[in-house]
Simulated scan of single mutants.
Amino acid sequence: MSITTKIALITGGSRGLGKDMALSIAKKGIDVIITYRTKEAEAQEVVKEIEAMGQKAIALHLDMSLFASLNDFVRTVKETLKIKWDTGSFDFLINNAGMGATVPFMDVTEELFTDFLNVHFKGIYFLTQQCVPILNPGGRIINISTGTTRFSNPGYSVYASMKGAIEVFTKYLAKELGAKGIGANVVAPGPVETDFNNAFIRSNPQAKAMMSSLSPLGRVGAANDIGSVVAFLCTDDARWINGQRIEVSGGLNT
């Protein structure tokens, strides 16, 4: 492996925001490991697109809702790094995988709460803990949050609460991992038109129009509005950005 080659691990990279993050990062000359939960065929297509750019890529299975599977996943990452890149470490961890649901507070069940906890906080917390020993000095952790930690949107009490925890967690990562030269930041998208949360925005023209009206730029976001920012944070140009929450929402509710 060339000493200049860097590697990013992006969870949930088979579709939507994660797919665009993977492609945008590959355009920066960075190799990519993506994960998928059920969309293996789509993940392999992303791998092909990245390889067509001249970068190495691979897709691995990961279900963030199965907390007990994290040990095996990290072991697979280590094996993959050795086999495909002849290295024992990587550079960028992008915690993107997630689940969506619009559920009023009074309808939230303990089962739903636990699912969101495992996927959006507990799983990320301990996956990050296991990955830090194999992150290179100068590496970065990028956690994906949401605009709804800054403004409230009915139906998102569980989702936004877990993302709020991630934002606090990120500040502690930046503080505690600085001695290793590892930085940590949050990217918080506003409304984005993807298939996330059953394509809520795409499938609801009225909701899309309402959200667009709240933005000074008059539209909701697209996947490539977010992926390019994540890719930027993986470059040397962003080396002095650390411990920050970067909202990418077009100025929504400014």
Rank of each mutant, 00 (worst) to 15 (best):
G18C: 04
D236T: 15
Q44R: 08
A43I: 07
I134M: 15
P154E: 13
P189V: 07
G147A: 13
R140I: 02
G251N: 01
K171S: 11
G250T: 12
A165Y: 13
L117D: 13
A22R: 01
N71Q: 14
D31H: 04
C234P: 06
F121W: 10
N185Y: 05
S152Y: 11
M64W: 00
A57Q: 02
K28L: 06
I33M: 11
V119I: 15
P104L: 09
E45G: 07
N95E: 12
I134L: 09
R37D: 06
M210W: 10
K175E: 12
A222F: 05
G164N: 11
P133L: 00
Q44C: 00
S203W: 00
S152F: 09
N185R: 01
P189H: 05
N153K: 09
K82I: 03
A41N: 13
A179E: 15
K122C: 00
D225I: 06
N242P: 13
A199T: 12
T254W: 00
S249P: 09
S215I: 09
G164P: 14
T102D: 09
H120Q: 14
G251I: 04
M162P: 10
T170V: 13
A231N: 08
K28M: 11
M21I: 15
T170K: 05
K171V: 06
G250C: 08
S89E: 11
K28P: 05
S89Q: 10
K28Q: 15
F169M: 14
C131G: 06
